[in-house]
Design a protein around this nucleic acid. Sequence first.
DNA 1: CATATTTACGGAAACGTTTGCATAAAACCA
DNA 2: TGGTTTTATGCAAACGTTTCCGTAAATATG
Lengths: 353, 353
Amino acid sequence: MAITIKDVAKAANVAPSTVSRVISDSRHISEKTKKKVRKVMDELGYHTNLNARGLVQQSTKTLGVVLKYSESDVWKLGNLFVSEVLQGISAHCHQYGYSIMITTGSTEDEIYGDVVRMVQGKQVDGMIVLYAKKNDKVVPFLLDKAIPFSVVGKPLERMNEIMFVDNDNMQAAKDATDFLIQRNHRQIGFIGDNPTFQVIQDRVEGYYKAFEEHGLQRDASYVKFVHTPEEEGAVVEEFLIMEAKPTALVISTPLQGVGVLKALHKRGIRVPDEISLIVFNKTLITEMSIPVLTTIDTEAFQLGYEASKGVIELINNPNTFKRSVIIPTKIEPGESHRKLTEDNNSVIDVTIE
Amino acid sequence: MAITIKDVAKAANVAPSTVSRVISDSRHISEKTKKKVRKVMDELGYHTNLNARGLVQQSTKTLGVVLKYSESDVWKLGNLFVSEVLQGISAHCHQYGYSIMITTGSTEDEIYGDVVRMVQGKQVDGMIVLYAKKNDKVVPFLLDKAIPFSVVGKPLERMNEIMFVDNDNMQAAKDATDFLIQRNHRQIGFIGDNPTFQVIQDRVEGYYKAFEEHGLQRDASYVKFVHTPEEEGAVVEEFLIMEAKPTALVISTPLQGVGVLKALHKRGIRVPDEISLIVFNKTLITEMSIPVLTTIDTEAFQLGYEASKGVIELINNPNTFKRSVIIPTKIEPGESHRKLTEDNNSVIDVTIE
DNA sequence: CATATTTACGGAAACGTTTGCATAAAACCA
DNA sequence: TGGTTTTATGCAAACGTTTCCGTAAATATG
């Protein structure tokens, strides 16, 4: 059995309560006894039992994090993103002395069970949910239990009751498209995954918006979706047989980016010489590819950091305004784009930027 | 305040102890009262306070995991590996009803502090340490406190007191080299990172061993180390100016693999036409690269799974033999290698496998 | 039918803290 | 000097469980 506060008290000839107050550095204890007690604590190698403290304080200084791992390759990639978000959360938590407990479940229901256990079992003071999705039971549960929590991503409903942190996906897509338009591209394609996701819809909208603001015509035939993994080839094919085929593509995930790169490579089409690519999410993948992909950095670390910040504020003051934080995105130029000559936006006769 | 066991007891007209026994499904309670109590529990929405339980049972059913994130790019890649190990741990933990708490520190000392807090604070029943390294304070601490733990990787000392799970790196490197020798390669280079790591030394040894077993001469000039990130170019250069330049390379990390690929690409050397590559660790990176890299899969998920299994066994029975588990590696053929013709191992006149 | 055994439950201590309340000693004030 | 305030500490309850021990009722035993 480990050393308890009582052992220390006995050895130092004080009451347990005094020891407790020394630990919390209460100002009601004289410096003299503080010194004495601390010395005994050191000698005996005392360490607070956080379980006991948690019980009486009704708080564990621990945050729960809902991780959504998935077997599918599409999500394995997500892990890089998740990793980085987690590091952001970690960084902030550490700063404020919070521990992190993660979900272990792999199915929807298992994860829900984990959350219930953490929350009802009083293992955590608050939660962070990575990725908002449809028909999710977790967020409604947390709302119902009035537990402090924040969401990384945009909640689909009851947005004003929820603290969340996300990128402005519309703006980001608009920026990316602007970036290409400014480099004299006019035929710009958009490739997204599941169009039922709000993220994708926002991005498509931003993409359109860029055209409008430049007084250009929007054209839905340049917007395509890849539904099953590794089907980028088909989409690329569709683009290539178009009359006015795109000189540039905005792509919504790194995985698709690389997929497109592969499909183009197979067809002998060079990037960025013949087509420019700009891809959402700067990850190791995009940095390691040949050529290095030009990306829209979504600042995953920062997303996590802010999410953690929000929850902890909420824990310390439950009346904190449930603000939503928008993390600005940034275009990270790589080697996968180039500028077309001003008077001629064909693929011939170009200047490398 | 939440519903406690006493509330349930009162509402069901039984003693708190009875409720507790119902929860643990004790056979000393009649089916009739079990039914009755369970009904009340449901109605009141009771959930065990795991803090209180942990306090009296001296066990939290939680495992601590020591994560070593790093800012350096070399390690960002590691995150993919870490992610997968973590999933393995998660899978097993979930199966046995264990929660996972992760370290949040980013420096050596911070992480050590996290571990001390978890262990001494009685927040966890056991620990899993990812990556054994030199001058590490964590493992000695855990040994000293006699806490159940396991290590993913090979401990550098006191191996027989420690339960660990690792690959047989010597065998893996030997297999990889064999693989190339069987395909008629004779000039085979080896690229590793920090040669002070045991992993790397083991791999070099395995590499040599393959040569010996085939009755070939070992040649230290074919073994090179990349000390700083992104310096693969220099090493590649060194290889290329050799009189008998290598027709194949064994490379110790995916990051270096891609680095080498880039360096070769820059010099216009085609893979696998002019040189074959085989890389340690199958990750998303190696799968997404062009060409897909032939890899030695180290089964990260399995490493985590077994590590978790070991600790939990150790928790349930402290006398469990501290076995070390060796997870077999597997060669995953990609597109980055080819077979040379049997009578001529020059780069001319070849057959693609 | 009396005694021994089993079954089903209640009472209360224990886990290791924190904290409100009480109080003795010291310090201050008039 | 007597009373009041302040300072420093102790006592005991509370947090929500589990579990040891005791015991009445039910059942089995001879």
